[in-house]
Lab assay of single mutants.
Amino acid sequence: RSVMTEEYKVPDGMVGFIIGRGGEQISRIQQESGCKIQIAPDSGGLPERSCMLTGTPESVQSAKRLLDQIVE
C-alpha cells in the first residue's frame, strides 16, 4: 500500500475549527480518515494555511472531504 504526502490549503481563519477544543476535531478527522494531518504553525500572513496530509491515496481523499465539510 503506497503512502503519499500531499499539501492541502485551508483558510487561515478556519484552523481553530479544524483543530477543535483540545485538538479533538483534528484527532477525529485523523481517526476517521486514517490520514495523518500536520497543520503549519502559522500562515506567514497569507489567507491560507498549509496542511500536510500523509497516508494512502484513499485516506488523503477522505481527509480532504472531512476538512472541506468543516470549512464550508
Rank of each mutant, 00 (worst) to 15 (best):
R1A: 04
S2V: 10
S2K: 13
V3Y: 14
V3D: 10
M4C: 14
M4K: 09
T5F: 13
T5E: 14
T5A: 14
E6V: 08
E6R: 12
E7M: 02
E7T: 11
E7W: 09
Y8G: 01
Y8D: 01
Y8S: 02
K9S: 05
K9H: 06
V10L: 12
V10I: 15
V10C: 07
P11Q: 05
P11E: 08
P11M: 04
D12E: 14
D12C: 09
D12I: 10
G13Q: 15
G13W: 10
G13E: 15
M14C: 13
V15P: 04
V15F: 14
V15R: 03
V15A: 07
V15T: 04
G16Y: 05
G16K: 11
G16H: 08
F17D: 15
F17M: 15
F17C: 13
F17T: 14
I19T: 12
I19K: 12
I19W: 10
G20R: 05
G20K: 04
G20Q: 03
G20E: 14
G20D: 08
G20Y: 02
R21A: 15
G22V: 04
G23S: 08
G23P: 03
G23M: 10
E24Q: 07
E24W: 15
Q25W: 04
I26A: 04
I26L: 15
I26W: 03
I26P: 01
I26C: 05
I26R: 03
I26F: 06
S27T: 14
S27R: 14
R28G: 06
R28F: 03
R28A: 08
I29T: 03
I29M: 10
I29L: 12
I29W: 02
I29P: 00
Q31P: 00
E32R: 08
E32V: 09
E32H: 03
E32N: 04
E32I: 06
S33F: 02
S33W: 01
S33I: 02
G34Q: 06
G34N: 08
G34P: 00
G34E: 08
C35L: 01
C35I: 02
C35T: 03
C35H: 00
K36T: 08
K36V: 12
I37E: 00
I37F: 02
I37Y: 00
Q38T: 11
I39L: 07
A40S: 11
P41W: 02
D42W: 06
D42T: 09
D42I: 07
D42L: 06
S43Q: 15
S43G: 08
S43D: 10
G44L: 09
G44W: 04
G45D: 14
G45L: 05
G45C: 11
G45E: 12
L46C: 11
L46R: 13
P47W: 05
P47Q: 15
E48I: 09
E48F: 12
E48H: 05
R49K: 07
R49E: 03
S50Y: 05
S50W: 03
S50E: 08
C51P: 01
C51Q: 00
C51T: 06
M52N: 07
M52E: 09
M52Q: 11
M52I: 12
L53R: 00
L53F: 02
T54C: 06
T54D: 03
T54G: 02
T54L: 06
T54S: 11
G55A: 01
G55F: 00
T56C: 11
T56Q: 10
T56M: 04
T56N: 11
P57Y: 09
P57G: 12
P57E: 13
P57V: 06
P57F: 15
P57A: 12
E58W: 04
E58K: 10
E58N: 05
S59M: 06
S59A: 14
V60Y: 01
V60G: 00
V60W: 00
V60N: 05
Q61A: 14
S62H: 13
S62Y: 08
S62N: 13
S62R: 12
S62T: 13
S62E: 14
A63H: 00
K64A: 07
K64S: 04
R65W: 07
L66T: 08
L66E: 12
L66V: 05
L67W: 00
L67R: 01
L67D: 01
D68F: 09
D68Y: 07
D68M: 13
Q69M: 09
Q69I: 09
I70S: 10
I70C: 14
I70E: 14
I70Y: 14
E72F: 05
